[in-house]
């Protein structure tokens, strides 16, 4: 057998080739790449700038006894606003608050759509061809997850860059270590989420089903989390949901690392949850791919 001698014995062969194929389809398509950049800009500039929550206190004229001087009222209100925002949002600036939430949002979205390419590969016969080659079954799934994770991280970087340009107020003690922490958190959540959505797609031949699942889950995951609004102001039942929503932990971790002074204890809990989430679902994915990729 001549060809056996030329084949590498690396069990992961083909993993990068398949990952790269998915990535190429993405970065070689300028329209998709541009939409990926434009969408977060729209969200940040519309939502982040429109919902200027801090100015609620300063931009109205309260009816108060006339013996208090106007300047004093303005001063008190401004101080009040700062304190309320800092206590509830952790920062005086809502734009910064939601811009960081936006990073989780972009990562979540990219991960959710990662299952779609699995459905297309099955429908178009590409998956069958790959299955007839000696590529490890786990690699087929892992390549999908990996490409989704890389895409998600690149998109998140773009959001971070745009947010910085639009006026993100980064904490004074921000270091390169914090940045690495941000990527670690986003890596874990995208790994877990894309594993889930690729798993849903593993036997499916209908992109409609996949779309329906994504549509059903994206808003709940987004709003039942701290991505746009602090959970402390939510009703108790909703808080329960936010506590099992991985988006909450990813957002909290990134916010602590970018905006706040880091609370080591809370950060450890965030990473523990995200780590467990990622490990559990990616393992389930790889184990099930052995059973369910072929019929």
């Amino acid at each position: 057998m001549t060809k056996n001698s030329s084949n590498s014995k690396n069990p992961l062969h083909g993993l990068w080739a398949l990952t790269n194929r998915d990535l190429k389809k993405w970065y070689k398509n300028p329209i998709i790449l541009m939409l990926g950049i434009v969408q977060p800009i729209i969200w940040m500039s519309l939502l982040g700038k429109a919902m200027n929550l801090g100015s609620m206190f300063t931009n109205f004229s309260p009816t108060l006894p006339p013996n208090i001087p106007q300047e004093q009222i303005a001063q008190v209100m401004s101080e009040l606003s700062k304190q309320a925002m800092t206590q509830i949002f952790g920062t005086a600036d809502y734009f910064s608050y939601m811009a960081v939430g936006m990073m989780s949002f972009v990562v979540m979205f990219t991960a959710m759509f990662s299952g779609m390419s699995m459905v297309f590969d099955r429908r178009l016969g590409f998956l069958n061809k790959v299955l007839s080659t000696p590529v490890a079954r786990g690699s087929i799934l892992m390549a999908k997850i990996l490409s989704a994770v890389i895409r998600a991280l690149v998109q998140a970087t773009i959001v971070l860059g745009i947010a910085y340009v639009l006026g993100l107020s980064v904490a004074a003690n921000f270091t390169i270590l914090n940045l690495l922490g941000v990527y670690a958190a986003l890596f874990l959540i995208s790994l877990g989420l894309s594993s889930i959505f690729i798993l849903i797609a593993i036997r499916s031949t209908k992109q409609e089903t996949q779309m329906a699942v994504v549509n059903l889950l994206n808003l709940p995951l987004m709003f039942a989390s701290n991505a746009l609004f602090p959970t402390s102001l939510m009703p108790e039942w909703l808080q329960m949901i936010t506590k099992i929503n991985p988006v909450t932990y990813a957002t909290d971790a990134t916010r602590q690392l970018i905006l706040y002074t880091v609370d080591m204890h809370q950060l450890a809990i965030d990473f523990l949850f995200l780590g467990a989430f990622a490990v559990v679902f990616s393992t389930i994915g790889i184990v099930l791919s052995w059973r369910y990729l072929s019929k």
Partner: peptide, 29 residues
């Protein structure tokens, strides 16, 4: 070697890239 009924080559990739992708799936250097 398998040639399926469907056109499975990736439309977004070039011809040569498609062949090299297949080669990678077999772990050919």
């Amino acid at each position: 070697g398998v040639v399926p009924q469907e056109y499975t080559a990736d439309e977004d990739l070039k011809g040569l890239e498609n062949i090299l992708l297949c080669a990678d799936l077999y772990g050919i250097p």
